[in-house]
């Protein structure tokens, strides 16, 4: 097995994961789009996490039960205390993608952020996220824009840094593949809008902070199994709502 180290950018220029992975496995489970998020070297000074990726689907044998997330075809183990991640999965693009969603979500949560079910669109000097559940019209909306303006039509990262809220081109998409120019920068979120479940494609008018929190909590990508991370996610949602109201 020929291992190599690649750097996965999770928060542009701020947080990366150094991944130790079998080279052939890596090329088999990533496509050209996903590879854009992996770099040969760490770019500048960054907060770094470590991820040992095993080809076989087996438990690491070290982490406790509440540090394991089992997905179909893979196991995710993490020790928050040691900032250590060990993930295993079968050689399958979709399973690897699911593992990446969990990894991104955990690391965003540790850094005041989360993944939001939303379509992200670049507008003027920032971006607007249109959040909604599956079938609410995120992809339909994203298709109306040049794909260079689309951050994602499925899951956008959201992070709070110094009282500003940012997103950036997402690793995850559904029907519209983002065609962003790879400048790897944070983009300020000007607004988070919510798509109506009744009137597909239309947005709901949200005037109260409580309603905004309700909708955010309904639409974030929840982390399963870990109470500490779940508690953190609720707290982050409140902090982010405070920036808009």
């Amino acid at each position: 097995m020929r291992r190599f180290e690649v750097c996965l950018s999770l928060i542009p220029k701020k947080t990366s994961v150094l991944v130790s992975i079998d080279k052939k496995f890596f090329y088999d489970v990533t496509d050209e789009y996903l590879k854009k998020f992996f770099f040969k070297k760490i770019q500048g000074k960054q907060k770094l996490y470590f991820w040992v990726f095993n080809k076989e689907t087996e438990e690491c044998g070290i982490c406790s039960d509440n540090e394991k997330i089992v997905i179909q075809g893979g196991i995710v183990c993490f020790s928050l205390e040691n900032q250590k991640f060990c993930f295993s999965c079968i050689k399958n693009y979709f399973v690897f993608n699911s593992v990446l969603r969990i990894l991104s979500s955990i690391i965003l949560c540790l850094n005041n952020g989360f993944l939001l079910h939303s379509a992200g669109i670049i507008e003027d000097n920032g971006c607007v996220l249109y959040s909604g559940k599956s079938g609410s019209g995120k992809s339909t909306l994203a298709k109306k824009f040049d794909n260079k303006k689309v951050l994602s039509d499925e899951l956008c990262p959201v992070v709070l840094i110094n009282k500003n809220i940012y997103s950036w081109p997402s690793m995850f998409y559904s029907e519209v593949r983002p065609g962003f120019v790879n400048d790897n920068n944070l983009i300020k979120i000007k607004e988070i809008k919510f798509l109506s479940e009744i009137d597909k494609g239309k947005t709901i008018s949200v005037k109260k902070k409580e309603d905004f929190i309700d909708l955010l909590l309904t639409n974030i990508f929840w982390l399963p199994k870990n109470k500490f991370l779940t508690q953190r996610q609720i707290n982050i949602v409140e902090k982010i709502a405070e920036q808009f109201f």
Binding site: E210, L217, W222, L223, K227, T230, Q233, A241
Partner: peptide, 22 residues
């Protein structure tokens, strides 16, 4: 034992971290 909760505004939000139910 798997619940995470927080009072936000006038409501108490409770999430079951095992099932992600809100």
């Amino acid at each position: 034992p798997h619940l995470a909760y927080r009072k936000i505004g006038e409501f108490l939000y409770v999430v079951d971290s095992k099932t992600s139910m809100l």
